[in-house]
Amino acid sequence: MAIKASATVQIDEPHVRVTRWTFEPGTSTGPHVHEYDYVVVPVIPGTLTMVDANGDHIAEMKLGESYSRPKGVSHDVVNRSDAVVSFVEIEMK
Rank of each mutant, 00 (worst) to 15 (best):
A2C: 01
I3W: 07
K4D: 09
A5S: 15
A5E: 05
S6N: 10
T8N: 14
T8I: 12
V9F: 04
I11M: 10
D12P: 00
D12Y: 02
D12T: 04
P14D: 13
P14N: 10
H15G: 02
R17W: 01
V18I: 15
W21K: 04
T22E: 12
F23I: 10
F23R: 05
G26N: 04
G30K: 08
G30F: 06
G30A: 07
G30D: 08
H32G: 02
H32L: 11
Y36P: 00
D37Y: 09
Y38S: 06
V39W: 03
V39P: 00
V39F: 00
V39Y: 02
V40E: 10
V40N: 11
V41K: 05
V41Q: 10
P42I: 05
V43I: 15
P45W: 04
T47A: 05
L48I: 14
L48T: 04
T49G: 02
V51S: 08
D52Y: 06
D52N: 15
A53L: 07
D56V: 06
I58L: 12
A59I: 14
E60W: 04
M61L: 15
L63K: 08
L63C: 00
G64F: 10
E65I: 08
S66Y: 06
S68W: 13
S68R: 14
P70S: 13
K71A: 15
K71Q: 13
D76I: 03
N79Y: 10
S81E: 07
S81L: 11
D82S: 12
D82T: 14
A83G: 01
V84W: 01
V84H: 04
V85Y: 03
F87I: 05
V88C: 02
V88D: 09
V88M: 11
I90L: 11
I90D: 01
I90N: 03
I90M: 11
E91R: 12
E91N: 05
M92W: 09
K93W: 05
K93G: 00
